[in-house]
Lab assay of single mutants.
Amino acid sequence: MRVFPVYAPKLIVKHARIFLTGVIWVKDLGRLEFEKGRFLLPRKSLPKVKQAILELNELIEAQN
């Protein structure tokens, strides 16, 4: 598990694309899981977490 002390979308996306499957922890967002290079949306999450995951997945799609 990698810990990101700040929310840096480009760096987080780079990590997810390299490792494809895993878990990261982002300060103020908490634990985020990714599989096959995409972030998974938890069943229950705060609106800011949901927005961050959608933003990260959009960045991943834009890079493909």
Rank of each mutant, 00 (worst) to 15 (best):
L20R: 08
E61W: 07
Y7P: 01
E58W: 10
P9K: 03
F4L: 03
P47I: 10
L56Y: 00
I60D: 02
L46G: 12
V6P: 00
I60L: 10
N57R: 02
L41C: 12
L54V: 08
E33K: 15
A62T: 10
L54H: 14
M1I: 15
V3D: 13
L46A: 12
P5M: 15
G37P: 01
I12R: 04
K50A: 07
L11F: 05
V23P: 03
R2S: 07
R31T: 05
L32D: 03
E33I: 14
L59V: 08
K36H: 14
K36N: 12
N57A: 02
M1A: 15
A52Q: 03
L59A: 09
F34C: 04
L46I: 13
L41I: 11
Q63S: 11
F4W: 01
E35I: 12
L59Y: 07
W25C: 15
R38K: 09
K50P: 03
K44L: 06
N64C: 14
I60Q: 05
S45T: 11
A16Q: 02
I18K: 12
G22C: 05
R43N: 08
I53T: 06
K27S: 14
I18N: 12
Y7S: 00
A62E: 13
K48I: 10
R43V: 09
H15E: 03
V23K: 15
I24F: 04
A8P: 00
I18Q: 12
L29W: 04
R38V: 11
L29H: 03
F19K: 14
V23D: 07
V6S: 04
A62I: 10
I60S: 04
F19H: 09
V3Y: 15
L40S: 05
R43S: 07
I24G: 00
L56G: 01
M1W: 00
R31W: 01
N64R: 07
F39H: 15
A62L: 12
H15K: 01
D28L: 13
P47A: 14
W25R: 10
F19I: 14
E58P: 00
L11Q: 10
K10F: 10
K10N: 12
I12E: 01
I60C: 06
L20G: 10
A8N: 07
I12N: 02
K44F: 08
K50L: 06
Q63H: 11
F19L: 11
V3Q: 14
R38A: 09
S45A: 10
K14T: 09
T21C: 14
A16V: 12
Q63C: 13
G22N: 02
I24Q: 00
D28W: 14
K48G: 06
Y7C: 03
V13E: 05
L46W: 14
E33Q: 14
L32Y: 02
